[in-house]
Amino acid sequence: MAHTVTSPVYVVQDNIDTDQIIPAQYLTLVPTIPDEYDKLGSYALIGLPDALYPTRFVEEGQFKSPYKIVIGGRNFGCGSSREHAPIALGAAGVEAVVADSFARIFFRNCVATGECYPYDSPVRLCDVLKTGDIATLDFDHDTLTANGVTYSLKPLGEVRPVIEAGGIFNFARQSGMIPS
């Protein structure tokens, strides 16, 4: 697979909870049903308050977002344990979320599902970048480059191959932990 991704970024602030990522009214969609998986993508980040986030993450009537990289602040993904959250982002085409820090269950759900890479950034990128800036995320060097500056990210370590495989079940099969 490609080891870099270049895309406009979508920038959000602290405490983006699971209700802002995928509001509870859309949890009637079951992620393992393919049509409903796609629909979850169309609602990704639709819970963000319009006044704070005038640019929509996914355009009305679309299933995919033009932003493959989301930049967040502290505690991204806090709140509910709903796996619909990383799935909605993944279904919308997000490859990675780069944030100051992640809530525990969201981080784990990213890894378990393999939907997107949760990168910790030592630099508070949500104060530096703005929505629409073009960035290149380099998975081999754990860096994000935007506006001519390269930022080091915290390496994903053992989490990376699990996500690359498409989640824990695929990883466990590929690595022989469980029979294929």
């Binding site: 509910s80 796996e83 269950i105 784990r108 824990i168 079940f169």
Partner: peptide
């Protein structure tokens, strides 16, 4: 374990209780 973040409520009963996602729960 429960597929709900407020599963931690059962910690009142001196147990380890926490919320997980669907994939972990399926496992």
């Amino acid at each position: 374990f429960g597929t709900d973040s407020h599963t931690c409520m059962a910690g009142a009963f001196n147990q380890f209780a926490t919320g997980i996602g669907n994939t972990d729960a399926g496992f």
